[in-house]
Design a binder for these strands. Structure first.
Lengths: 187, 187
DNA sequence: AAGATGTTAGGATGACCGTCCTATTTTGTC
DNA sequence: GACAAAATAGGACGGTCATCCTAACATCTT
């Protein structure tokens, strides 16, 4: 991502939406954090939904890149699934503070009945479909692969929520161990 | 709970905080929904934090009642744990729409850096300690019981979040089945 | 019945927010 | 270098919100 003003806005908004939530983040918050005026901000994004839309697109892009990276760095599907499981550890510090960026955004947009909820959910679907395809490569049938992908998504979500609620980073390590054991049992 | 104005306010606020989130619910929202004036509302609760505090206390009270009910209706600790597991089914319709009331509130208050986050987390602790004591009755040592309680909390949280994100009520049934199987394996 | 206390209504206030507008500066093009 | 286009600044606007105030009404006590 370049350092154009537009991209800097998206980067800052991405972080603030994660840390403070979408509704609790104001235009001024973002503009101040980027170091630009409100007028300049408005030149790039006319409405709050526009910036939210850009952030979601950015997250979708980053997620695809992440999945591609795992796909090329790991040859075996179970190793790839382990990459997913271990993001809880990679991002443990932020998860402890702010929970899972995907889960917390979709939950908030759901309560706001926000029209862009549909798009935010695409990030979940991206992970789900990718996980399902890995389980298929492991030899599972299509329907079971779907179910296993949903299960693993749910487990990761729960680990993040509870680690955040109890401010317990260590819990994430225990959960990752448990998820890896689960993976080894079913494969 | 009686039908005094104060109690009616708490009931409505409880529901609205769950459905729309704390920040997205205004004084007017609550007053209108109860059918009283803003001035009347103010007579009972001076600040938004005061009503949030009352709602949290109410939820703590209701949670204690729920746990006591399970304690008296079920003689065996594993049956009691099953009661906890099955709230996902009991509340499936609302969970699909709004997620878990405990998890979504603590997540939101966390992002707001709200001083009452500490109190909201007590609801989680209530469930955790109660679950841990049930696992102890099952014969587990104290530290393992704590760990199992956290695991089960996390699993339930994850199931609720994913069911809500995908609008998938059926998923809750599959998850409850899976959690019950897990319980039977470890006991 | 009368005064005191609790309850309700409805509007005022000041702050903040999303949005919009205008003027100025910078950048790019020929 | 001149001109168009893009970028930036800063403030205006209408709305909503939490909070507060005052007055009217109801209930209770004696």
């Amino acid at each position: 991502m370049s350092d154009s003003t537009r991209d800097r806005i998206i980067n800052v908004a991405d972080a603030l939406f994660y840390q403070k939530g979408f509704e609790h983040t104001s235009f001024s918050d973002i503009a101040n954090s980027v170091g630009i005026s409100k007028g300049n901000f408005y030149h790039h994004f006319k409405t709050k939904d526009e910036i939210l839309n850009a952030v979601i697109d950015f997250r979708l892009f980053r997620t695809r890149e992440l999945l591609n990276a795992w796909h090329t760095s790991e040859a075996e599907p179970d190793k790839r699934i382990q990459c997913f499981i271990k993001i809880l550890i990679t991002n443990r510090a932020k998860i402890k503070l702010y929970g899972c960026p995907v889960g917390t955004l979709t939950t908030e947009l759901g309560k706001l009945s926000h029209p862009l909820l549909v798009d935010a959910n695409k990030i979940f679907t991206l992970f789900k479909d990718w996980l399902a395809s890995q389980f298929e490569e492991l030899g599972k049938c299509k329907s079971e692969s779907e179910a296993l992908a949903m299960q693993l998504l749910a487990r990761s979500q729960g680990s993040a929520t509870i680690a955040s609620a109890f401010g317990d980073e260590e819990f994430l390590y225990e959960e990752v161990e448990s998820h890896v054991r689960w993976l080894n049992e079913i494969k």
